[in-house]
């Protein structure tokens, strides 16, 4: 039994975090005395899932490398499909005491669906945390579709059904982009709750196929067969890669998770936080967890992160008539 100071603070401080997120701008924050108090770490999903746990580990691992011993206190804001947390982060005081982790391109999908009057790419980017697994196309093991060519042939006869989350989810978006690029007529059966949920849906035969992260598909080896990898290269025998399919750009479909602060956060505070985040990326607990959960921890600089984020935003903007 090891009740740590951070664990106790997390448990006890939760109700007070909302108030701290709504403070007005503070003067002379981000200077040499930064951080002088606890930092709120907004997690835009409910407590308990993989995203939440990764975020907690990261926040925890950032603490030792901050110039002063303060807590990075997780604050779950689950409403609105992640939109409420992102909104709260965007509107918080830019003083370096509120940061948050966001899912990309998820927040840009929300921005688009909800017609938000601001651009999330204006956030002060602290660094990437994970680069997601590449996507793959899979069919159920018993399916008569054996290869990618079979799938294309089926789509010439009728629309191919794909299982996915709702229109606000990354998998839905990935399915739309990939099927359009690959010339597959698709009908998306949406509304599944999670990647496991829609993968099991395809395994059950709800749909002809599914486009999901390869790590998720590999966890159901008895029920699903991968027929195409949307990564740049494929080490699966007989399974073509995105390059083989003539669409190397599909390798960029993979999502990323990044830590950000409200727009206007002082660069000094961003630099301090990036230093702590970089150290957290080397933390053994974070590494082990990522390995077990098919995530690739890769902390990039604020500038590189901003460039990656813009790339994903532009990919969304180019979607045009996909809706």
């Amino acid at each position: 039994m090891r009740i740590t100071r951070r664990a106790a603070a997390s448990a006890l401080a939760l109700p007070f975090m909302a108030a701290s997120c709504q403070r007005g701008p503070a003067a002379s924050e981000g200077g040499a005395s930064y951080p002088a108090r606890d930092i709120t770490f907004i997690i835009p999903v409910a407590a308990g899932g993989g995203f939440d746990i990764l975020s907690r580990f990261i926040g925890n691992a950032m603490e030792p490398d901050l110039p002063r011993r303060v807590n990075v206190v997780p604050f779950n804001v689950a409403s609105g499909g992640g939109g409420k947390g992102a909104n709260m982060l965007y509107r918080a005081a830019p003083d370096g005491y509120t940061v948050g982790i966001v899912n990309i391109p998820g927040i840009f999908v929300l921005q688009r669906i909800r017609r938000l009057p601001y651009d999330f790419s204006d956030l002060a980017w602290i660094g990437t945390v994970t680069l997601g697994n590449g996507y793959g196309i899979a069919v159920r093991s018993k399916s008569s579709i054996r290869t990618f060519d079979d799938l294309v042939a089926l789509s010439r006869r009728r629309p191919v059904t794909f299982a996915a989350t709702g229109p606000e989810g990354s998998s839905h978006l990935a399915t739309k982009i990939a099927t359009r690029a690959l010339g597959i007529r698709a009908r998306i059966v949406s509304g599944y709750r999670s990647s496991t949920d829609y993968s099991v849906g395809a395994m059950r035969g709800d749909t002809d196929a599914v486009i999901a992260a390869l790590g998720t598909l590999d966890r159901l080896p008895d029920g699903l067969r991968v027929i195409a990898s949307l990564e740049a290269t494929s080490d699966r025998p007989g399974v073509p890669s995105a390059v083989d399919l003539g669409h190397p750009e599909l390798a960029d479909l993979k999502g990323l998770r990044a830590v950000a602060a409200p727009p206007g956060t002082p660069p000094e505070a961003v630099a301090v936080l990036n230093h702590a985040l970089t150290a957290a990326g080397r933390d053994r607990t974070v590494r082990v967890w990522a390995e077990q959960n098919d995530s690739i921890v890769e902390i990039r600089s604020p500038e590189e992160t901003a460039a990656l984020v813009r790339n994903r935003r532009d990919m969304m903007a180019n979607l045009g008539d996909v809706d």
């Binding site: 039994m1 740590t4 106790a8 448990a11 939760l14 407590a47 308990g48 779950n76």
Partner: peptide, 11 residues
Amino acid sequence: LILLMPITLAL
């Protein structure tokens, strides 16, 4: 469970 979850981190 959500309220107790942070505590389970330390267990």
